[in-house]
Design a protein around this nucleic acid. Structure first.
Lengths: 149, 149
DNA sequence: CACAATATTATTGCGCACAATAATTCAAAT
DNA sequence: ATTTGAATTATTGTGCGCAATAATATTGTG
């Protein structure tokens, strides 16, 4: 066994795939903070709002599956969004276990401010156009397979 | 403007690059939980230990730059690792501001268990070999550019 | 109907994440 | 030598993240 190849090579940071994934994700979320501050949203809240803007009213469970968050994270987050009057939380009569999450008028109209966020985040990941496309394809594919499990 | 292309398209979840990045990273960290439990480490602690196994003793600041964590996260995390007797935290005489982080014997030898983690995480991202390589290249490149700023 | 099993959300507990700020130590400049 | 400024780590406060568990409502089965 040579110097340049030991049994510990597999735990070098440079040889990890998951570490740059983890670190990039954190950096990106951090970069969103400023522009989202103007909307009064955290990154996670922004993701939840995007799901609601696109799909409309749904249960907490459906929402959680869409954005990859469980009830332990989502329940308090939704209460905060309700307090900010972005969403409403209501129990349907037919099934009082479920919690329907719907947008308030204010929440719905925040959409018009939110469309300014993606343009301002252009270049937040400093890669060429082709590389960004390729990266998105790979991440979408990986994520989809995780959802299928 | 047609139905299929509105000004709100840019805030559809499907059109985000950062969302699958964020979601994938979370899923991956979650998958590490089980195997790391046997080492008594969280994912973030594991990353910190990898940096120390590879580079040896360094200051908190250097460590933080390597793993992309600031003092607000790192300080309490290092105290927990010290309590578990994985690391030592000492102030050098020449500069009492700095905090040197070094491995204990126990921390050093945990390395031998840790080498089993990457193999057990093979397939944690369900992509072909070539796709994994490409993904790593793109993420490394993106992360490197973020570090350069 | 009774009651067991399931579905759905809420709570708890611990740790990460980071901005903002404070506290301490060191270095530089007059 | 004193003071100013920079470097370094620690603390505080808020929110995310998730496993484990609890609480409640519904559904299915005898």
């Amino acid at each position: 066994m040579q110097d340049s190849q030991t049994k510990y090579d597999c735990i070098r940071l440079d040889n990890q795939l998951c570490f740059p994934l983890y670190a990039c994700a954190k950096e990106v979320v951090r970069k969103y903070r400023k522009p989202l501050e103007e909307l009064g949203l955290t990154y996670t809240q922004y993701v939840v709002m995007m799901a609601l803007w696109e799909h409309g009213t749904m249960t907490e469970g459906e929402l959680g599956r869409l954005v990859h968050l469980d009830s332990g994270t989502l329940a308090p987050l939704l209460k905060r969004l309700e307090k900010q009057e972005m969403i409403k939380r209501t129990r349907p009569d037919r099934n009082e276990r479920k919690l329907m999450i719907s947008l308030t008028e204010q929440g719905e109209s925040l959409k018009d401010k939110a469309v300014n966020v993606p343009p301002s985040m252009q270049g937040c990941i400093d890669l060429d156009r082709d590389e960004l496309i390729q990266l998105k394809i790979l991440l979408d594919k990986a994520l989809k397979r995780m959802e299928e499990e």
